[in-house]
Nucleic acid binder design. Sequence first.
DNA 1: CGTCTGCTTGATCAGGGTCAACTCAGGTGG
DNA 2: CCACCTGAGTTGACCCTGATCAAGCAGACG
Lengths: 264, 264
Amino acid sequence: MEAGRQRQGRLWSNLKEVCDLLHIPAANSIANEELLFQHVQFKTGQRIHTIGQPFDTLYIVNSGFLKTVLIDEYGNEQVLSFPMKGDMLGVDGIHTRHYSSEAVALSDCDLILLPFKKLTALGRIHLELENMMYGVMSRELVREQAMIGMLGALSAEARVARFLVALAERFAQMGYSSKLFNLRMTRHEIGSYLGLTLETVSRTLSAFNEIGLISVDQRTIGIKDSEALKTLRRLPPSRTRGKPATGKSKGGDTVPSGQLLAAL
Amino acid sequence: MEAGRQRQGRLWSNLKEVCDLLHIPAANSIANEELLFQHVQFKTGQRIHTIGQPFDTLYIVNSGFLKTVLIDEYGNEQVLSFPMKGDMLGVDGIHTRHYSSEAVALSDCDLILLPFKKLTALGRIHLELENMMYGVMSRELVREQAMIGMLGALSAEARVARFLVALAERFAQMGYSSKLFNLRMTRHEIGSYLGLTLETVSRTLSAFNEIGLISVDQRTIGIKDSEALKTLRRLPPSRTRGKPATGKSKGGDTVPSGQLLAAL
DNA sequence: CGTCTGCTTGATCAGGGTCAACTCAGGTGG
DNA sequence: CCACCTGAGTTGACCCTGATCAAGCAGACG
């Protein structure tokens, strides 16, 4: 809303604003008013791009919430991410020149269009921009690596807990409250994202609520004990059998009845 | 082995060879013999880079097999990928300027060093190279997305099956046999990669062996029925309850005793 | 030749998926 | 305005997949 200006009845952003959105330290040398990127608005439920569609532009989220999904051979959706302000969409299309995922608006959205050709050409002139591109793609990769680690190693409770913490941090850095916020996605979508069923997500939220870690009312989540959420991990504390990679938890771990919590 | 030349007692590759390795259509305009990239050899078990180590170079695998791992807060390894010939390593370091994963040689390896600064500078001159960079990073991203989809939605059997198929395809495109090959990693590493325990991996391989899908002898795998492996999916065929996304499996699916197989 | 690591196989158990019933909020149309 | 419908969410009962624990085996190596 703050970024962008009217021009011919449309919103446009300059390079500086784009860099700010992406948290890229932009040299002011590039505050070029002639270099403008167009905005596009999407309404809730609209598709930004679909799988297989020819790729030619990247998107940056200026406002709103989305999901990106994969669709398997049986038509089942698999949620890959929940992009929000400052995130980039469409990077997966660069390789094959066709988007390999689908992006859907979970709320009314304002996106900035970045024609890929134009962007790379600009990158050769403005090195910050080039660095931005590499940086954003690398960040995305690291994020997905973390996701893989989570799916491969964590229990259902831990996944939901970390999901909430991550969301809270995103809201914080967007200037919203990190203690009380609204989920923009359904339990089903959360479950798909975390590799769980909607029932498990629902139950886990209820459990957290009872223990006092959070408060739940429909889509409204209140974070009560973010520390506990952060340190929550798999229930059977996977006590290093065999070779302790780092000899640490040798003591009996006398956590009495903490079958849900596990102190660090 | 074919790529690279001796010079001052070391191996070097030119841009063309690098592009070939990455399957990038390289304009021969860049067959510049002055632009050479150095090779480095690693022996089995050696670490290419570690988590947190300052980033400044990318690597391309010229020969050999590796694994990249994440290490969680309790010292547990989580395998992220098994890079082999033509794969790029270290991309995750670009964002924070520190590697966020660790790469270990599973066999003796020959890697090509790509100093990142030098690479991006070159990219501005040779557009193919720039495209290569974006393309490789995007491909990596797509690969990880597929991984997330797999971890989030597939059964143990399906994961192992697809792992074998993917390996076979990699070997094929490297010129080796796709029907008979040697695993370079332990059951434990496979399990970590697939989000399973080593016991489950072992049992699943044994089961495939008994059914005649593959032959197993220690690290030697023979692919007998790659079609069946490809179409294997979750055991309870998740018969589209509620809304059939694509109304299909309405007929009784008279697969007799196929509790392990699931025809498309 | 003993030891160690990787692998297999068996027995047991529980985390979380599946199925089902019910509630609740919002949208629609008579 | 209210009856109705639909989709989201909650909760319970049950059971299966895959983790855990345990034992035994084979090849590599000092």
